[in-house]
């Protein structure tokens, strides 16, 4: 029973990380951008929930969705499109600068202290099934991860935009030559990653009920790590990486002796280094990531 309990907890945390990792991995796969500002898509959504507190909840979620998608598209249009051809380290620092700027803009607007909102308290209430204590939000996290990952896989593999997205990711120049409007495809990728960010926001806020302008950072960091160990550019890899990091964190939390508890993160990241050394291209390597002569 305790094992099942552990499994459920691990899967729900892992699910949240997997969604974050897929959002980051999708953009990386399409334009090679390591998007630090992804955490800010999650963060700004939380503040929309704060402002729409008291609305009927689907309305609130819709507001978040609209705002975050527009926000993500604007970040692409105003910033990332301007540096499309820049070297990768510049892209990385640009996204970091953007993320930094947005965080402090929110400090200006809302202050740097923790704000709380009571969003959908019903779903975070736990219930017991045969001795297992399950919070509704854990089930939602697992469910959302499965549904969204499956939907995304279908979208990428079987729709027109999905085909084009893979084409841009394989070879942007060739894709342009055969008539793919790459800016539109990239915008679509940003919109989808914003959708994933909204899911993370809603689940995260429903679970914790609190936010600061900086809470996106730690999620993004874990998302990156998950993306890289899963295999950059491979969406199943990102999902797997997210699940593994989440599961490992949860397991360590339960299994480590108390005096080693504070060092939990050190163990997780040491494991990340080991995975990278054994499989530098990630657990599920993408063929196009191999350097060609």
């Amino acid at each position: 029973m305790t094992f099942l309990q552990m499994l459920i907890d691990a899967a729900s945390v892992g699910g949240l990380y997997a969604l974050t990792a897929i959002g980051i991995g999708l953009i990386f796969g399409v334009i090679g951008l390591v998007n630090f500002a992804y955490g800010e898509y999650i963060m700004v959504g939380a503040y929309v929930l704060l402002l729409t507190a008291g609305f009927y909840w689907p309305v609130a979620v819709l507001c978040v969705l609209v705002f975050v998608v527009i926000f993500a598209l604007a970040s692409d249009w105003l910033v990332f499109r301007q540096v499309r051809r820049a070297p990768p380290e510049t892209l990385m620092i640009v996204s970091f600068g953007l993320s930094f700027m947005i965080q402090y803009f929110y400090v200006m607007l809302f202050g740097s202290l923790t704000r709380t909102v009571n969003f959908l308290p019903e779903i975070s209430r736990g219930f017991e099934v045969g001795g297992l204590r399950i919070a509704g939000v854990s089930l939602l996290q697992i469910g959302a991860t499965l549904v969204l990952t499956a939907a995304l896989a279908i979208f990428i593999n079987f729709t027109r935009i999905g085909y084009q997205m893979r084409a841009v990711s394989e070879n942007p120049r060739m894709a342009r030559l055969v008539g793919v409007n790459s800016n539109r495809i990239i915008a679509a990728a940003f919109a989808i990653s914003a959708l994933l960010a909204v899911t993370v926001t809603v689940l995260f806020v429903a679970q914790t009920g609190s936010m600061t302008p900086f809470f996106g950072v730690s999620l993004t960091m874990i998302g990156f790590v998950a993306t890289v160990i899963g295999g950059l550019g491979s969406l199943p890899g990102c999902a797997l990486g997210g699940f593994l990091v989440g599961a490992l964190t949860t397991l360590l939390q339960m299994l480590l002796p108390p005096d080693l508890q504070p060092f939990r993160e050190a163990f997780v990241f040491a494991a990340v280094i080991v995975v990278l050394l054994v499989r530098p291209r990630g657990l599920i390597a993408v063929r196009s990531s191999l350097e060609r002569v």
């Binding site: 990156f224 050190a266 990278l276």
Partner: peptide, 14 residues
């Protein structure tokens, strides 16, 4: 490449 960046970052966190 990116794996090296994340590897060094993981080292920093540790």
């Amino acid at each position: 490449g990116i794996a090296a960046s994340i590897g060094t970052f993981a080292f920093f966190i540790v």
